[in-house]
Amino acid sequence: MLEAIKLKKTYGDFEALKGLDLKINAGDIYCLLGANGAGKSTTINLFLNFIDPSEGQAKVNGLDVTTHPLETKKFLAYIPETVMLYGNLTGLENLAYFAKLGGHNEYSDSDLRNFLKHVGLQDGAVEKRVAAYSKGMRQKVGVAIALAKQAKALLLDEPTSGLDPKASNEFSELLKQLQGGGAAILMATHDLFRAKETGTRIGIMREGRLMQQLSTDEVSHADLERIYLEHMH
């Protein structure tokens, strides 16, 4: 579903991404680990076609994102570090807008409410302006948007950063539900524990290069931390 082929991004002399090869299939939660500036967000931005690759290809559902920018975005959902919504609209109004932007006009008001209920947004919050939402509530609305969009691939850029453990755990559970529904998920994170708990595969990045890929089944928490730190030195 998500595929990077010799994907490279340079800014002048600086190489942000040095020929990334990556494939994430339906049902995979692929966690990208790495320090700041390792190339995790660059990879996500390239899949979103927010920036142009210098070389190589980023493909979604077999389509190159640079030549099919709109078609590929029909399959994608994006959850950034903080899901930014229109603060003067309610959660429900935001969800309705983004669902329609994704081409889904078929939802009734109760359908949309169900999405928000499903992700755990309290009933009272649905009609409140998003400006008053906590970060956890915003992330939930982000997942609701992905659900409403029926996204086949999710791109998450440190989505649990700053969330308390409970909210973080709830978010992981939602991701697993999406994974169960057959979505391919790419999540950039600093959280080794969350990556091991939630992911199916892990990639460790450093200075724009994918240093090592692991299956979460094959590695313990301690081993993962050791391997990660080895790559960071």
């Binding site: 979103l48 927010f50 920018p69 709109l70 078609e71 975005k73 029909k74 994608l76 959902a77 994006y78 950034p80 903080t82 899901v83 930014m84 919504l85 229109y86 603060g87 983004f98 932007l101 994704g102 081409g103 948007i145 969009k149 791109l155």
Partner: peptide, 14 residues
Amino acid sequence: ERGTLAMVMSHPIS
């Protein structure tokens, strides 16, 4: 600056 542009542009709209 608010971050909503990235949310919007992750949808199929030019």
